[in-house]
Design a protein around this nucleic acid. Structure first.
Lengths: 226, 226
DNA sequence: CATGGTATGATTGTATACAATTATACGCAA
DNA sequence: TTGCGTATAATTGTATACAATCATACCATG
């Protein structure tokens, strides 16, 4: 995406308003702005071709999400993900993904179930061939379908936020050999949902997160966040 | 608080920046601005004695919290709490308060435990005398101690947000006869934490939320959010 | 009377100007 | 050299000006 032409893309996914916000957000999550780095309103505004006003508004939102810290009259500083935060998020997600899977049993649509099935089938293909990028994308999509199928805007919103938040870690995780294993777990979760077995679905989704976390710990993938 | 003198209170709890945000937030949660009401930047700015700029920044944050919806080039509209949202939040909180109580077993400090004890003791006093306002305040404080004692900024932040969000409902709930029962449940949770029994603490905190929710349903307290 | 187009006003979106605050650099004295 | 105080620059905080968009009312036309 071209920095200077942000204004032209009003018809795109996000309004210009949300644009600046999502752009800065991405840049933080993707590591362009490092931990503790100071974000200056004019500099970022120039880079995105807008004035300070929308940048400031974006900063306020980013602070609320915990991605930056704003010290009054001083500046905005990137709040890097800490190992402790990742651990916490995975444990929180474990509970919430479980709840989500439970609710999905009752509320998932035929279409969503079919898309899940297709997703898993495709992932088997890419896992066998070591296509890491596609695996990450498919994992992303699987969880988003799950979130959307629980029929709770509250939970969906929350889980999508956390999912985004640990994006950096997740990519690394799937780049390791867990992709195939993870996909098998997806399959079991889907089957439990299809059988309308909420206890089983919850337990499996629960464990899925714990497994993902323990895999990261075992492979030492968290060292880069210290 | 006087509307016109917001600027003078810079030394107070929140900076002026956060002030406007928290003030509008309160006004929504307390029902001053009703569901679907349109919030106009100039009007609110005048009421608070500030210009549109800080108001707009506050709007952005409020939207992220889900308290208002901003339609580009149109306006900001209050998003009232829906019964479904309350149900979802209580179920989500059930899981998370459980996790929080579990973590508290390991991480609570002597001081926090003592404050909990004092809180419960005091609540017995006020419950017996039907002091509803004090009960609400004590309940508020109990949960905040719990959140702070879990040693997870992530979980603490999340639970405090939800706690605030259902403030209106909670007040009504405690105004009914559940205050005393709720306090007994607090006592059991505290004791499980003191005994360092995470499974029991989690289960009790879990059930505490479910009981609170079912009480609301039984008493028909949710009808006012339809 | 219904319909559609246009003008007008209201409101939001963005940029900029000015004020307040903070960080930095420099000079001076101990 | 070190420490302190002041001047200066840089940055944020707020208000306002202007642009863009949307809602409304009015009028013309069928």
């Amino acid at each position: 995406m071209d920095n200077q032409d942000l204004k032209q893309e009003v018809t795109d996914k996000y309004s210009l308003r949300g644009r600046v916000f999502h752009r800065i957000r991405e840049d933080i999550l993707n590591g362009k702005y490092k931990d503790h780095e100071e974000l200056k309103e004019v500099a970022i505004g120039q880079e995105l071709g807008v004035s300070r006003t929308p940048v400031r508004e974006a900063f306020r939102q980013l602070e609320l999400e915990g991605l930056i810290q704003i010290i009054p009259n001083r500046g905005a500083y990137v709040t890097g993900i800490k190992v402790k935060d990742i651990e916490d998020i995975y444990m929180i997600r474990s509970k919430l993904e479980g709840l989500c899977a439970r609710w999905a049993c009752e509320n998932i649509t035929k279409e969503q179930l079919e898309e899940m099935e297709e997703n898993i089938y495709l992932a088997e293909f890419h896992a066998a061939r070591g296509h890491m990028e596609q695996m990450a994308e498919l994992d992303n999509r699987f969880h988003n379908i799950l979130y959307e199928s629980c029929n709770s805007k509250m939970l969906e919103h929350l889980l999508k936020d956390y999912h985004q938040y640990v994006w950096r870690v997740r990519q690394k995780t799937l780049s390791s050999s867990r992709g195939a294993v993870s996909n098998v777990e997806h399959k079991f979760i889907m089957e439990a949902i299809r059988e309308n077995n909420p206890d089983k679905a919850e337990e499996l989704a629960n464990q899925h997160m714990i497994n993902a976390y323990e895999n990261m710990v075992d492979k030492g993938l968290l060292s880069m966040f210290e």
